[in-house]
């Protein structure tokens, strides 16, 4: 059997909100390592990888590896029924085609359980090798979300360019053009407000803003976002999940025709 219990259930609600618009159906892999997922969007332009390590849960039991295929919109509907302060338990028995979500209020005076049908999903799992990135940007996640939102009112694509001067986000469209430059700023009162740019080589890549905006749905999960870029590689946009793991989004670049 498989069972996990998360006292800070709101984390799981936020995780679902960060992936449900990008991916319709996905296989969750349950193993002794943790609860994980890898899925591509329907056009195979972006990929999301989630890992929530078993040690991060208050209780985690996985007798044998299990894959649970779920419709993420339906899963999100069920998790929306959990209160923000609720403790969430996910349970699945071997050989059944359902998963149970149990929500307990902090004072234990309300306990709900929701049963959801699992699905058989034929999904391709990609091997993503570890890579040394030419440029790594760490910045406040809210700032990155703001930049993506602002630039999408100007154009459909963003050019991200990292140089010694900083990181430049540019967009161009029918009404005009926009450039936003963020410089390294490590001398802030709070570390979550810092912008840190590690650059081995200058790098410039172009990406569809529609996907970037979808990634920023993960902003409530983490104060900081990490953007890793190399020429001719997908960008990796990573949000940490409160000491338990991460959500990483991979986005293939656009190239000149």
């Amino acid at each position: 059997m498989f069972e996990l219990r998360l006292v800070q259930g709101s984390l799981l609600k936020k995780v679902l909100e960060s992936i449900k618009d990008l991916v319709n159906d996905a296989n969750f892999d349950c193993s002794s390592t943790g609860f994980s997922l890898q899925a591509m969007d329907s056009s195979h332009v972006a990929l999301v990888a989630l890992l929530l390590r078993s040690e991060g849960f208050e209780h985690y039991r996985c007798d044998r590896n299990l894959t649970m295929g779920m419709n993420l919109a339906n899963m999100a509907k069920m998790l929306k029924c959990a209160g923000n302060d609720d403790i969430i338990t996910i349970k699945a028995d071997d050989g059944t085609d359902t998963v149970t979500f149990m929500f307990e209020s902090p004072s234990q005076d309300k306990i709900s359980d929701f049963e959801m049908k699992l699905m058989d999903i034929d999904s391709e799992h990609l091997g993503i090798p570890e890579a040394e990135y030419e440029a790594i940007i760490r910045m406040p996640s809210a700032e990155f979300a703001r930049i993506c939102r602002d630039l999408s009112s100007i154009g459909d694509t963003v050019v991200i360019s990292v140089t010694k001067e900083g990181v430049r986000f540019s967009a161009r469209g029918d009404i005009g053009a926009a450039n936003i430059v963020c410089r390294q700023n490590a001398t802030v009162d709070k570390p979550e407000d810092a912008t840190i740019i590690e650059m081995q080589e200058p790098v410039t890549l172009t990406f569809a803003l529609r996907y970037m905006n979808s990634f920023t749905k993960a902003t409530p999960l983490a104060e900081q976002v990490t953007i890793s870029m190399s020429s001719d590689l997908p960008v990796v946009v990573e949000y940490k999940v409160a000491g338990m793991g991460y959500i990483r989004y991979y986005l293939a670049p656009k190239i000149e025709e």
């Binding site: 195979h44 391709e124 990609l126 991979y250």
Partner: peptide, 14 residues
């Protein structure tokens, strides 16, 4: 503008 590449062009099936 530009051609959108696919993620499967970069990473192999595992």
């Amino acid at each position: 503008p530009g051609v959108q590449l696919s993620i499967t062009e970069f990473y192999r099936s595992s």
